[in-house]
Amino acid sequence: MSLRNRIVLVLAVLALPLTAPHAGERAASLYQLHERLLNQDGKPIDLDVYRGRKVLVTMFYGSCQATCPLIIDTLRAIERKADPLQRDELRVLLVSFDPERDTPGALREIAATRHIDTTRWTLAHADPSAVRRIAAALGIQYRKLPDGQFSHSTIISVLDAGGGITRQSADIGRADPELVSVINAK
């Protein structure tokens, strides 16, 4: 199981382009999607909960053993590489593919087990159609398998204060220097 998920991540690295929306597109912002989510405390939030700050956003699901920790480790590695001032301002948003199993309670447990600082990180529950739209907006592919597991790509995006996607990376397991430089940029 964990091996398979590790494979998925490697495939993600292979299969997906690293793109940032180019300047030619109209100013796109993730916050143009208005989605009602629930955070790990069961509190209703909007997708733009961290508007005004730079955000690392990606998607995951709780019941896979390998990917979840690896994504969290990668996000932590990016945080560590950021300049201290930027790190304090940086926020992290993780949306689950799996609303059925990753209820707010389950998300809270993950946060506790992984010692996640929920003052700066949010683990979010979204209903299936919201999951679909958020994944589409972030360019993340995912597919629910008959056994309830998810096959998915992983892309970590940096949002600017207005929600614009400034940089994306499919790198897992290390802090992509391109992401770090965008975070550190003024």
Partner: peptide
């Protein structure tokens, strides 16, 4: 299609 984001086909 609704699940156009689920094709998960390799670019190659």
């Amino acid at each position: 299609v609704e699940d156009a984001g689920s094709m998960l086909v390799s670019d190659d």
